[in-house]
């Protein structure tokens, strides 16, 4: 499962970093999405799907 992230669309709400902290972080400066690891490690798929579902701006997809 590969992750696509669009930092232009991202509004830095942090739902991804809150939901799947092992996969997502936020940049220091703008707070926008940083993908820590892709493809998604085994066992993290469900959390990543939930993070995608939770994202308020539709900035991440799998």
């Amino acid at each position: 499962m590969e992750i696509k992230a669009d930092t232009d669309v991202c509004i830095g709400a942090g739902m991804c970093a809150l939901t799947a902290p092992e996969v997502f972080d936020q940049s220091e400066e703008e707070g926008t999405v940083v993908v820590l690891v892709s493809p998604v490690p085994e066992g993290q798929e469900a959390l990543v799907r939930r993070a995608v579902q939770q994202c308020p701006s539709g900035a991440i997809s799998v």
């Binding site: 509004i11 830095g12 709400a13 942090g14 970093a17 809150l18 902290p21 972080d25 936020q26 940049s27 220091e28 400066e29 703008e30 707070g31 926008t32």
Partner: peptide, 12 residues
């Protein structure tokens, strides 16, 4: 404006 501020309110 939002991008000026989001870095200040990250989860970390």
């Amino acid at each position: 404006f939002r991008k000026l501020l989001t870095g200040q309110f990250t989860v970390r």
